[in-house]
Nucleic acid binder design. Structure first.
Lengths: 236, 236
DNA sequence: TCAAAAGTGTTGTCCTTACACCCATGT
DNA sequence: ACATGGGTGTAAGGACAACACTTTTGA
């Protein structure tokens, strides 16, 4: 007996919301849009959209990310499904949240005129619609946790970056000061970085060597458990 | 302007599936049901059900867990949302998977006659409907990962348990032999266990002391990052 | 008295941390 | 020449892993 449809069941809207992180050199930022549409027109929110009939959740998230940023091949990971019956004030909607880590410079090259978007440092997030603040909070904790054991923060940097840049990123994400000697030893001991011959000369007179990821080793070791921050206890 | 409903959008069934783990003293097991209903009647599957109009996802998962096991106040955590458009052969359904850790003995006291359920060791999972095998695989990896840093496996044991029991649990979950001297030192150094005065005398002549969780400290330290297994590298 | 599992301590190695000085360069 | 940030080495302490013998008791 072939069944065609489940009867007497309640169908629900399924949406995606994207927490898009970028690093401005000092702080981790989130990309938000000012809604030009109802509901809650004029307020800030995460970029989101409904899941279409023929696409899976990952595809929907990629599509929505591309719609705002123009970017593809981005680090994107499912975070959590939010399903409070009243979280969306219009109609019940289950939202599957994804977080993305992008190189903030790549974004700035793109310009999307359909949405007015802006970066906000995590400590200065404005009031958001629905449960979007909760989503960002959870995403932040997830990135923090993940970055303590996996080399995921490289996704936030350009292809060429310096150790001081990398260190500020770690310091901001973990909200801690790190000793630069210990940091460089630890990071370099992973074998993931290849030193380039040229230097970045904007932010210091001496200049700091550029590094580049060894992509083979990066992929191979991504899921390995590394110890990337001094006191994992400082996480909660 | 108040909107009443999103127009032109596609509504989807939202279901919950529960991966219920129990430990039989030797192996980690999963509780499966033999479906007495369509679709796929007669095949093994996870326990699941649709999300009802007025309940959130956690509530739906608790309800479904209780329906099968009779148990409440169980460790239950959202795992992942599965949303391939064709994963359910009847009709598109997004399933939010949860995993539960229960004391297998508590379950056996309960008898649910509506469902014929059975425990399967992880290495002997039968063929399952839809994407349920993938769900179990992901849940297994999640438990393994989580247990390496957080004292979550206690949820699988009765209130009173012995160190050898705990050790076999860790050994099975991480698929590794652990030195008992190092293991007991590490576990006891967390300060989470209180030794009882009585012994378990079934499985050895000498008898092994019972321990009990210090619930205050357990709650306090649950999210702290502990090092609970010898070589985190043995995870992948 | 023997077998079977429980319980316990020490040592060497490695990893982690704390810490201070020199280097290169632009002004 | 000096100020600024980049880059490196070492020593002490703590954590981890490897390892073997004694204890208890039921048969």
């Amino acid at each position: 007996m072939q069944i065609k449809r489940y009867t007497h069941q309640n169908r629900i809207l399924v949406a995606i919301d994207c927490i898009i992180f970028g690093f401005d050199g000092t702080h981790l930022n989130v990309l938000l849009i000012k809604r030009g549409f109802e509901p809650q027109k004029g307020r800030w929110s995460l970029m989101g959209g409904f899941v279409l009939p023929e696409e899976n959740l990952d595809h929907a998230a990629s599509r929505i990310l591309k719609q705002l940023t123009g970017l593809t091949d981005i680090y994107l990971e499912q975070l959590y499904a939010f399903g409070d019956p009243y979280r969306d004030t219009v109609e019940r909607t289950v939202s599957v949240a994804y977080f993305a880590l992008i190189d903030i410079n790549k974004y700035e090259e793109q310009i999307n005129h359909e949405y007015s978007a802006a970066w906000f440092p995590l400590k200065k997030i404005p009031s958001l619609i629905f449960d979007h603040e909760e989503m960002i909070q959870m995403a932040k904790e997830k990135v923090q946790y993940k970055a303590a054991f996996h080399p995921v923060l490289f996704e936030l940097l350009p292809e060429k970056f310096t150790l001081p840049q990398l260190q500020s990123l770690y310091e901001d994400v973990h909200n801690a000061m790190i000793d630069k000697r210990n940091f460089s030893r630890k990071i370099l001991s992973t074998g993931l970085l290849i030193r380039q011959n040229d230097k970045e000369r904007e932010s210091s007179k001496k200049g700091a060597f550029y590094y580049r990821l060894d992509k083979r080793k990066y992929q191979a070791k991504f899921n390995a458990i590394l110890n990337l921050i001094p006191n994992p206890q400082s996480l909660k």
